[in-house]
Structures are given as structure tokens and as C-alpha cells.
Amino acid sequence: MAGGAGPAASDPRIAQAERLLREHGIEGARVSAAGHQSEIAAVEVSAAHIARLVELAPEIKALGFRYVAVDLASVDV
């Protein structure tokens, strides 16, 4: 997915965010750092998990992101 391939691979926040999501029952979610300052946690996740993601947003931001957002291209309704 565009926006997260390069620096994302060495960004520890990504593995931490994916682990956090797994621990809270969101399996298969992919996270990348997006934005011109890599300030956004861009999450690829199914529509069924978005409500849970909203609840977890503060914890994901605490990893060092300013925003948490769903990649609309990944949402299957």
C-alpha cells in the first residue's frame, strides 16, 4: 500500500500498533505511517472492526502518532 513502504519498515510504531490491534481481537489489520511527517497511523481494516478501532485510537496515538485513520480503499462493506 502506498505511503508506508519505505521508512515504515523500520518504524517501530507500526509493529507496536499491529500487535496492539491483534491483542484486542482485530486480526489481520495492517498499519503504515502516512502523511508528510509520518504522523498518521493508517490502518487497513474491515468495516466490522472500525468501531473497536475508534475505541483503541488513544492507545495507538500514544505510540507516537498524531492521528489514527482508516484506509478507505481497504474497507469492505
Binding site: 502516512a34 493508517a42 472500525i50 485513520a69 484506509d71
Partner: peptide, 14 residues
Amino acid sequence: RRVLLDVEGYRRGA
């Protein structure tokens, strides 16, 4: 290239 939906929604002065 990419369209993201902020899960916290709209807030003034974000």
C-alpha cells in the same frame, strides 16, 4: 494517492 478516514471524526482546530 491515498484517502484516509480519521476515526476520531471532525474537530475544530485539529
